[in-house]
């Protein structure tokens, strides 16, 4: 589904990713773990197509398509979802308007019919309910005044609404208390655990992996994947630390 080969990327001329290769098949959940500064978030942003993150070498194909040739919105329409570590506040644009625009833009690019206001609202309320988010928050400006945990929950509501094929979730567990972590974990499993879908979890800690069992765990250090294994590798990392294992 997603094939990354020998990826090199830099920000402001500074190399961050230095030959990263990774292959994710449909039905799989992969976790990328690693110390601070290893390039975890950069990988997420490069996949999402954030301006300023320059790919200097290598390739990324998604569903057979050259992902790097697509604009960020085209990547979304192709089924890619990037869950942000720090979701952005957008004053003056309501959650409902933002998400309806997003969903209908994606649908339009796939030649699907736009959802009416009422149809969309029903869908959005349902997703909010499943993630235990107050439906009133849908009317509020995007992420404005939301706590860290509410922002992450809002990311999951958005993911449920756009229903992507592939989700890259960057530190989705940070800022969550234990109850919220369970709700978000359940949400990821419910929305993304399907034979035709896949997930790339970028995380610093093992705790989210108690709720979302990864099929593969990779250690990212200094811009490359230095080690790969099954779920047990995450536990080993938690016990022994990155310094030992990443080296």
């Amino acid at each position: 589904m997603l094939v990354i080969e020998n990826l090199h990327a830099e920000i402001d001329g500074k190399p961050i990713l230095k030959g990263l290769s990774l292959s994710v098949n449909a039905g799989e959940v992969h976790a990328i773990m690693g110390p601070n500064g290893a390039g975890k978030s950069t990988l997420g942003y490069v996949l999402g197509g954030r301006p300023g993150y320059e790919v200097t070498e290598g390739s990324i194909t998604f569903g057979g398509q050259d992902l790097l040739a697509l604009a960020p919105n085209e990547r979304a329409a192709a089924g890619l979802f990037l869950g942000f570590q720090y979701p952005v506040e957008i004053p003056g644009v309501s959650n409902v308007q933002f998400l309806r625009e997003a969903l209908n833009a994606q649908r339009a690019s796939r030649d699907e019919k736009a959802l009416s206001g009422a149809e969309f609202l029903k869908l959005a309320r349902e997703e909010a309910r499943k993630l235990d988010m107050d439906a009133e928050m849908l009317k509020r400006p995007v992420n404005v005044g939301f706590s860290g945990g509410e922002k992450k929950r809002n990311e999951m509501v958005q993911m449920g609404i756009v229903d992507p094929k592939f989700a890259i979730l960057d530190e989705t567990d940070s800022g969550l208390d234990i109850d919220a972590l369970r709700i978000v974990g359940d949400g990821i499993n419910r929305i993304m655990r399907a034979p035709h879908k896949a997930v790339l979890l970028i995380t610093h800690y093992q705790r989210l992996l108690d709720y979302v069992q990864p099929d593969f765990v990779h250690v990212l250090a200094d811009g490359r994947i230095t080690r790969s294994g099954g779920a047990e590798l995450a536990h080993q990392l938690e016990r022994e630390g990155y310094a030992e294992i990443a080296a």
């Binding site: 999402g48 197509g49 954030r50 301006p51 604009a71 960020p72 919105n73 990547r75 979304a76 329409a77 990037l82 942000f84 979701p87 952005v88 506040e89 957008i90 933002f98 998400l99 625009e101 997003a102 969903l103 833009a105 994606q106 690019s109 958005q158 756009v162």
Partner: peptide, 16 residues
């Protein structure tokens, strides 16, 4: 315009 907000919106499917 806030570039972070523009990218966030684009990443959800909204054309620039």
């Amino acid at each position: 315009l806030d570039n972070r907000a523009l990218f966030y919106m684009q990443s959800r499917g909204i054309p620039r």
